[in-house]
Design a protein around this nucleic acid. Structure first.
Lengths: 204, 204
DNA sequence: CCGAAATGTTAGTCATCATTAACGTAACCG
DNA sequence: CGGTTACGTTAATGATGACTAACATTTCGG
């Protein structure tokens, strides 16, 4: 059959992606060191050392996972900033990006903000750089909206909002995604507004 | 009882507390499975198996840590509910409790919401019960303030606010605690208000 | 058909690690 | 004093786990 040959063996890309997906799920649930190579292999139906045909080691697997997600976040944010109109719209677009990730890939988001410490030095720096760029997209837009607010405060507020949005994995099942999405958007949006108002230190 | 001398040797409690503190720090940084008994011993100046004089094992150490923090949270919340005046005040008090924990014991808070899965079944149930009670204190107060809002939505909002407040460890150093505290309070408070308004599902 | 990728498999190998054993030592109680 | 208690120490011991070796099998491109 002259079935036009798939240039890349059809299993390979799939298997790699499958491994990354299952590994993310397991790492999120039990932590990087709580998951064995056997566990990951088992989750995709092969067993143990087969993973070394696709990744050079457990560390490399984690590195690629985190590099991928931080790249995607950063790219989506850059796109949002480029195509949106005014700063209000841009901020909504950034919220949409983060909410989509949090809802659609809770495992990746969880691993992304817990396991950076287990990535080898070299790629850790790369990932940190992407994360920093991502945060700076937020801070830049917020600074446009509130030029008088110090950057440190904007950065702290941004991290707090990430915490809010990334809580989705914890409250899984409380609400359906189509209800969760506008809820998170409204909460995050008003929290950001509150963050830049009232810079005075009033007694708690 | 005629007051007999200290029934418990003076060193014991200190050493135990020291171990718990250092273990929390290490677990928060590298995860339960990423920390060895040797690591913990080393952090308090004794080495390795000395820990077994104080705890029956690594699991028991984690169990006690999480049981302690969930008890304290739940008790503080109960106290806040008891002594505060109206629901507005009570909510502010609850926010104060969680913010104090998040700022003063970031390691414990981190371990508390990551490592429950590594606690043996028996005490895991106990801890979950305490966590549920804690959440219910929040939901009860919020329901008083907004009787028309469905409980599931209030619960989701509560978890989201925990995520926001517990983000402190991530943004460590961005702002000094005396600035962080009112910032978190304002953000969390307005986020909760936003959560109960606008229950309609509008396009994101 | 031939050989080289690609992709698995099952048995090591070598570390690391939780836990236990066996053995001090100092303080305190009687 | 004498022994018990609290606390430590340094060797085992036994699992588990990451990674490597040696050995198929399938799939194609030529």
């Amino acid at each position: 059959m002259t079935t036009v040959p798939t240039p890349v063996p059809r299993t390979r890309g799939n298997r790699r992606a499958e491994i990354l997906r299952e590994a993310a799920r397991l790492f999120a649930a039990r932590g990087f060191h709580g998951v064995s190579i056997e566990d990951i292999g088992g989750a995709v139906g092969v067993s143990g050392p087969a993973l070394y045909r696709h990744f050079s080691g457990k560390d490399a697997l984690l590195s690629e996972m985190l590099l991928d997600v931080s790249s995607r976040l950063r790219e989506s944010a850059a796109a949002a900033v480029t195509y949106a109109g005014g700063p209000e719209e841009t901020l909504d677009a950034l919220l949409g990006v983060q909410i989509t990730f949090a809802i659609e890939e809770p495992a990746l988001i969880t691993v992304h903000d817990r396991e950076l410490g287990n990535v080898p030095e070299r790629e850790r720096r790369q990932i940190r750089r992407l994360q920093r760029l991502y945060v700076e997209e937020w801070v830049t837009v917020l600074a446009e909206l509130h030029p008088s607010c110090p950057a440190a405060r904007l950065r702290a507020a941004t991290h707090a909002v990430f915490g809010l949005l990334n809580s989705t994995p914890h409250s899984a099942g409380e609400l359906p995604p189509q209800a969760m999405r506008p809820l998170l958007h409204a909460m995050a949006r008003t929290a950001l507004d509150a963050a830049v108002a009232a810079p005075e230190v009033n007694a708690d």
